[in-house]
Design a protein around this nucleic acid. Structure first.
Lengths: 339, 339
DNA sequence: TTGTATGCGTTATCAA
DNA sequence: TTGATAACGCATACAA
């Protein structure tokens, strides 16, 4: 068949022509604004417009709309380490929360959000790494010019944007205590080990818990687990192979906890029975690997953040941007309790 | 300080005013087109423009640019199951491939790509699920109107868009044969079990391999593993707990393989020693969990797809869109060889 | 070497 | 109930 397939994507103008109406009418009908008090389009006209749009496969250009309205219908999740169960849990929660909405979650994995926020103009942005020098000022500027930002950071003060604050230190201290109640010896798996302890950090909480009980800190039980799962796995493997290995392991991130679980399995050690394993973040309730992982973290964290994002994207400024503090608690599961 | 922070995001016009030039000049400088033969901007002017942009925190609006040029600088990855190691491996590969480019990979997890392609206007789209009835026609239409599409599908014929074709069936047959050479009994973990066998599918290949050797197909060794890791885990656990469990397991997806590994670990079975485990996809070379997973799949698949995406996004139509066939081979690793 | 003017696809204001 | 039309921010042909 000689089919002169239209070589260009359909525009609102083509729909208007096909339906025999003006572009304004098409816009009204398709934006659902056709029943506003000021602008009522006839039912029959509306139907004709919808038919024409359907026939042409017309979908409004989000770019053109964004130029005009400033809104893109987009939720941007900037996640440093997408493969971390924590990140995946957040993505899943946001996906759920945007169901039935006109919002689309978009994930930028390990990308630089700084230019992205401006260029993509998402309706709201979640940022999990804002620790570069000028970031506080940049975030303030962005927020001041209308960008909606939700930032997770232990130090940042809200300043036109929302800040997710977690009870890291107290939580980790609590987890360490819980483990020390149950096990005589507890090792630590954190990205950088305990070489340079940042006060208020997760490894610091572990060290403080030991010291409070007059227990020695054994550096060989606190290796650097690195920034990815495979190096964490190697670190865990090496630690668990030691003749004098600790009875339990505390992992400061979910990907490390997962790696530790794998390493234990690889050595034939049953988590909860032969070795205690606990993680930080409490993300495994969502991305279950079958065995319950003892973990410290907030309850319903991901759902709460997702709800916040959706509400911000909708332009809900009823509650002004501020700090969102999440209490942490220990969830004891099979990985330290046995089967 | 009384600082009347500019309440609006900076536009090209503001940059122009601050630098004392016209918007055209700013556009030239910032698009790097300032040294084109037809439009040469003076070095000193260019510097002034860049300073002004920097001071204002100006970033061109991708939306406005897209309206004008049709390009967004975006690679959209539409992935049904983001948490599958396969998906994560692709994301990582694309991230690598876009490094140093002006392209940004964006992931849409378990979203409907059909309206997204039109509304977001990415420079190229990767699609892993195009099996709905009208999809072939839709893809053709989209491609005809200029959208760059790379679709992974066993049945689709390229039609203005690229198709990634995998040697699924033959590969799985090969894997089954390899396992049957080494083990007397082999079970299958696939999302839907072997209830309704699709000819040419992965489970079908397993069944054919058994039949070719005159071995019985035991349904109790082929449970439905479901669509997520936790249900796959439960299925694997149940299967491995049987007194008459098979000596090896073949998982038709990476997330199932991962779940099987976890289930084995949970039962104290060492993969490769106590139980053979193999997966389909060959993604674990990238997202190593420490133990090498025997798998069947293409070599350098993710890198190849990533390169294709980048080249399509760049508008490289030197080779017209077509089929990209990937040969599969078996990679035997520790999970069937022992440590 | 730089500025002016126009158009991209959309929404929204206003008049008809 | 509908239609003209201005504007959004940017890129570019063309004029200067």
């Amino acid at each position: 068949m000689a089919q002169a397939a239209s070589p260009r994507r359909p525009t609102i103008r083509m729909v208007a022509e096909r339906a025999g109406v003006s572009v304004a009418t098409v816009s009204y009908v398709l934006s659902g604004r056709s029943s506003s008090p000021t602008t009522r389009v006839g039912d029959e006209t509306a139907a004709r417009v919808r038919d024409a749009a359907e026939a042409l496969g017309y979908v409004p250009s989000s770019a053109a709309r964004a130029v005009r309205t400033g809104r893109t219908g987009t939720v941007l999740l900037s996640l440093t380490m997408l493969s971390d169960p924590w990140s995946l849990a957040l993505v899943e929660a946001v996906r759920r929360a945007t169901r039935g909405t006109d919002l689309t979650p978009l994930v930028a994995a390990d990308a630089d959000w700084r230019p992205l926020v401006r260029s993509l103009q998402p309706d709201v942005v979640f940022i999990d790494d804002a620790d570069r020098p000028g970031d506080a000022a940049l975030l303030r500027t962005l927020a001041a010019s209308g960008d909606r930002l939700v930032v997770m950071d232990p130090d940042l003060a809200p300043d036109g944007f929302d800040v997710i604050r977690n009870d890291d230190h107290a939580g980790c201290r609590l987890l360490a205590e819980t483990l020390l109640d149950r096990y005589e010896t507890v090792g630590l798996l954190s990205p950088n080990g305990i070489a340079r302890l940042r006060p208020g950090g997760r490894p610091a909480a572990y060290v403080e818990a030991l010291k409070a009980r007059g227990l020695p800190v054994r550096p060989e039980w606190c290796p650097a687990a690195g920034d990815d799962e495979s190096s964490a796995f190697r670190a865990a493997l090496e630690l668990l192979r030691r003749a004098d290995r600790p009875q339990a392991l505390m992992a400061t991130s979910e990907y490390i906890g997962q790696a530790a679980l794998g390493a234990a399995g690889a050595l034939g050690l049953r988590p909860g029975t032969d070795i205690g394993i606990a993680s930080v973040g409490n993300a495994f309730a969502t991305t279950s690997r079958g065995l319950g992982m003892t973990s410290v973290g907030p309850e319903r964290f991901f759902e709460a953040v997702a709800e916040l994002l959706v509400s911000r994207a909708a332009g809900d400024d009823g509650t002004p941007p501020g700090e969102h503090f999440f209490e942490w608690q220990v969830f004891e599961r099979e990985s330290t309790l046995g089967a």
